[in-house]
Amino acid sequence: MHVLVAEDDGSVAAALVSALTRAGHACTRVARGSDVLLRHRDAQVVLLDLGLEDMDGLDVLRQLREVSSLPVIVVTARGDERSTVRALSLGADDYLVKPVRLHELLARLLAVTRRYSPPDEPLRVRVGSVEIDIDAHRVHAADREVALTPNEFGILYALARRAGQAVSRRQILDEVWGDAYVASSRSFDVHLGQVRQKLPEVTITTIRGLGYRLEDAA
């Protein structure tokens, strides 16, 4: 599996990466929380230190959980009960205190990832008369084909595969642009407006303070 190792101490990071690599895992090491938020979509699990170069790991975890359910194991020197409880309440899947026994880490890693089984992505999504073909990257509404740019298609798919549910702005930015915290909100608004204009067959409702919900306009 691909492990994102977020650790600001070079020697600790090297030991973790070496052990994971010997166990057959691919690793990417970062030292900044902003890089976790930028690169998490390439990983299958995150090992998260709480003392990173640019921000507290708990803040990273909180922001990550706003857009992703990716498994996270906290690996930190903070052994106090308050930090443990807060990390777990923010959505960490496990919590290990340094120095970590590598065999235990590998066992916890496998246990966490076994519990996480993302659903298969559908090849086609239909909302009313609108059908989205994921592989072909094509959209049909009734008897016409609708031309969408890649970003417009991404926004539509992010909403359509959760039709009837509220989807946060950050989730969409993370899925389409790959970064919910840097991507231009103005660019998002323009693309969303284009989707609404091109597909009157669906209704995209703005939920103030939360995000958007897509439904069949009929």
Rank of each mutant, 00 (worst) to 15 (best):
V112I: 00
L110K: 13
P71A: 06
L52K: 08
R114C: 14
V60W: 06
S89I: 11
G24E: 03
L110I: 15
A23H: 10
R62V: 03
M55S: 09
V46T: 02
D59S: 08
D94L: 06
L38A: 12
E121D: 14
T76W: 04
E104I: 07
V75Y: 04
L88C: 01
S69H: 12
L96R: 05
R39F: 09
H140G: 15
S89M: 11
L38H: 14
V45Y: 05
A19N: 08
A43E: 06
V74P: 01
D94F: 05
D42A: 12
D80P: 03
G57D: 11
R22V: 13
V125C: 06
L105V: 03
L64D: 02
V85L: 12
I132C: 14
V67H: 04
T28S: 10
A31T: 11
R22Y: 10
V30P: 08
E104G: 07
A92K: 00
R32Y: 12
S129L: 03
K98F: 04
S117F: 06
E81W: 06
V130I: 12
V75W: 04
L38P: 10
R65I: 01
I134R: 14
Y116N: 07
L50E: 02
L52D: 13
R65F: 08
G57T: 07
E131F: 13
H140I: 13
D42Q: 15
D42Y: 00
A142F: 10
K98R: 14
L50K: 06
T21E: 14
D54G: 12
R78E: 05
E66W: 05
S129C: 11
T76H: 01
V146S: 05
A147L: 15
R144F: 09
R62T: 07
D54P: 05
A87V: 03
A136S: 12
Y95T: 01
V75S: 04
D56Y: 03
R65G: 13
T113E: 04
D93E: 08
